[in-house]
Computed example of a mutant assay.
Amino acid sequence: MTRHQAGLGSAGSGPVRTPDAQQRDQRLLCRRVGQSDLGAVREVRHALRELLGASPQAEAADVAELLTSELVTNALVHTGHGAVVTVTVGEAGLRVEVRDFMPTLPTPYVPSSDDGTHGRGLLLVQALADAWGVHEHDRGKVVWFELGDGVARY
């Protein structure tokens, strides 16, 4: 199993909590963004920063914002539909899920030097996230990533 397929909080990584205790220890953000509403990317970033609050782990928050922006932008630009962004912050870290309504699964794009900054979103997620993946949903897909260490202390 690669690090991108491994989930956070595997067996033996800490105390076992009941689902109720886990939910009390988590903070949640859920936003729906409309089709082609690229201004919503900034709003989601600000809501994420507010959820994370002030912290000495600013670098981890910056990475979380960058990767969230990339996934939301990808969902809006490449699907032609809106998306639902869900962020969960708990003891194990942060998990961001961006659900869109198109069944086509993304593949990391290998950009050429002529592409400018186009096509690097999933490469950034792959490089900076502790884990990431895609799973199909009944009406589309969910692209997600997790960050552990720096964000877990928020």
Rank of each mutant, 00 (worst) to 15 (best):
His4Met: 14
Asp115Tyr: 11
His135Tyr: 14
Arg95Thr: 10
Val125Gln: 03
Thr68Ile: 05
Glu43Arg: 15
Asp138Gln: 12
Asp149Pro: 08
Ala54Asn: 13
Arg3Asp: 12
Thr88Phe: 02
Val84Phe: 07
Asp100Phe: 07
Asp20Trp: 12
Glu50Asp: 14
Leu52Ile: 04
Glu91Val: 10
Ser13Thr: 13
Thr86Arg: 15
Thr73His: 11
Ala21Tyr: 01
Thr18Arg: 04
Glu146Val: 06
Thr2Lys: 14
Ala47Gln: 08
Gly119Trp: 05
Arg49Gln: 12
Gly34Asp: 15
Arg17His: 07
Val110Ser: 15
His118Trp: 14
Gly9Pro: 04
Glu91Gln: 13
Ser10Met: 15
Trp132Arg: 03
Leu8Ile: 08
Gly12Ala: 04
Gly82Tyr: 04
Arg99Leu: 11
Val72Cys: 01
Leu124Ala: 12
Arg120Glu: 10
Arg99Asp: 09
Val44Arg: 05
Asp115Ala: 13
Pro15Gly: 11
Trp144Met: 07
His81Met: 12
Val89Ser: 03
Ala21Leu: 09
Gly93Asn: 03
Arg31Phe: 05
Ala92Val: 09
Ser36Met: 12
Ala92Tyr: 04
Asp138Pro: 10
Pro15Ala: 07
Pro15Thr: 09
Pro56Gly: 02
His135Gln: 15
Thr107Asn: 09
Val41Ser: 01
Pro56Gln: 04
Asp149Asn: 11
Asp149His: 13
Arg3Thr: 11
Leu122Tyr: 11
Arg153Asp: 09
Val151Gln: 01
Ala92Gln: 09
Glu59Met: 09
Gln57Gly: 06
Thr68Lys: 00
Gly116Pro: 05
Cys30Thr: 14
Arg32Leu: 11
Asp114Phe: 10
His4Pro: 01
Leu147Trp: 00
Pro56Glu: 08
Met1Leu: 10
Gly39Lys: 14
Pro111Thr: 05
Gly53Leu: 00
Gly9Glu: 07
His81Ile: 06
Asp100Ile: 07
Val41Arg: 00
Ala61Asn: 11
Val151Pro: 00
Gly14Ser: 03
Leu66Gly: 02
Arg31Asp: 10
Val142Glu: 03
Gly53Tyr: 01
Val77Trp: 09
Glu70Val: 08
Asp62Tyr: 03
Ser69Val: 08
Ser55Ala: 08
Gly121Trp: 04
Met1Glu: 08
Thr117Ala: 15
Glu43Pro: 05
Val142Asp: 10
Thr2Leu: 11
Val72Leu: 03
Asp149Thr: 12
Asp115His: 12
Arg49Val: 05
Leu48Phe: 05
Leu105Ala: 11
Ser112Ala: 08
Gln35Ala: 14
Arg153Pro: 02
Met102Ser: 15
Leu52Tyr: 00
Gly12Gln: 06
Leu51Ala: 00
Gln5Asn: 15
Arg139Ile: 12
Pro111Asp: 00
Ala47Lys: 04
Thr88Lys: 10
Val110Gln: 15
Ser10His: 15
His78Asn: 06
Leu71Glu: 01
Phe101Met: 04
Ala75Met: 07
Tyr154Phe: 12
Pro19Val: 02
Glu136Ser: 15
Glu50Ser: 13
Leu122Gln: 07
Glu97Asp: 15
Arg95Ile: 04
Gly14Cys: 03
His135Cys: 13
Arg45Leu: 09
Ala21Pro: 00
Asp20Arg: 12
Gly7Ser: 13
